[in-house]
């Protein structure tokens, strides 16, 4: 039967690349509560994926596993070459910015490499600063440099912009995109911000009740997304449990019924 089907409806000849990340039937629980429950996830090399979910939905728990901080179970595929940017930049306060950037990196030219990475993220003027003197945006730039210097195949971003003010966040979005275009790591951006997800990602996953509840590819290329954004926003908010007609925030909360 399947033979027949395959002959009569040949698959399009797009060869799916081998995913760089693959979790199958992944579960994680703390005591009684099952945070992640039989979750499947695959990310292709160089793909920019956003993982959207409300607070407490298990985004960080999933990301910790991909970052190698928690055990993954049996069939998991996770690249060895990966780096994480955390929401709270987590720079070691007792090391200068450049030393943080090359933390755990061996080699003669550490300082020079750190300076190059800092230049890429626009922080070349503060290699010798103490982390506690950095602003939130600067700390995240340093944190990005620390991740990039490892040339990761998988870049994990755990709500790295959530604590930044709106203008700084926009600059950081642009920075992340340009860095991604230049280095082409696979990116998993964990966020609760629908706009952020739509602006940055190729594909948006919605995490709910412990599994990927929905998947939305962003059909239009970046820069030409104006037309797809409204319906997409409405669908994503719907997946998150907020029903809106037009996907317009002002109408969503201001609706007179």
């Amino acid at each position: 039967m399947s033979e027949v089907l395959r002959i009569s409806f040949p698959e399009p000849p797009v060869r799916e690349p081998e995913p760089i990340v693959r979790l199958q039937g992944f579960s994680r629980h703390f005591g009684e509560t099952r945070v992640l429950d039989d979750l499947d996830l695959a990310i292709a090399p160089g793909e920019f994926v956003a993982l959207l979910g409300r607070s407490g939905s298990g985004k960080t728990t999933l990301l910790r596993t991909l970052a190698g901080l928690d055990e993954a179970n049996g069939g998991a595929v996770i690249p060895a070459s990966r780096a994480t940017v955390f929401q709270d930049a987590r720079l070691l306060p007792w090391k200068r910015v450049w030393q943080n950037v090359v933390l755990g990196v061996a080699g003669e030219d550490r300082r020079q490499r750190a300076e190059e990475a800092l230049r890429e993220v626009g922080l070349e003027h503060r290699p010798d600063a103490w982390p506690l003197t950095l602003s939130g945006g600067e700390a995240q730039r340093a944190s990005l440099a620390r991740a990039l210097i490892r040339k990761p195949e998988l870049l994990l971003l755990d709500e790295p912009f959530a604590a930044l003010d709106a203008l700084t966040r926009i600059r950081m979005h642009a920075l992340v995109l340009s860095l991604w275009r230049r280095h082409k790591p696979a990116v998993l951006l964990v966020t609760h911000d629908v706009e952020e997800a739509m602006a940055l990602a190729d594909r948006i996953l919605v995490l709910d009740a412990g599994r990927i509840a929905a998947e939305e590819p962003v059909a239009a290329p970046r820069g030409q997304r104006a037309s797809v954004v409204r319906p997409l926003r409405a669908r994503l908010l719907g997946h998150l449990g907020l029903q809106t007609d037009g996907g317009v925030y002002a109408d969503l909360i201001g609706r007179d019924t």
Binding site: A67, G68, L69, A83, T84, F86, R90, L103, G104, R150
Partner: peptide
Amino acid sequence: RRLLDAARSFGL
């Protein structure tokens, strides 16, 4: 712990 986690995630 968060600093330890971060450092651990970089393979120290």
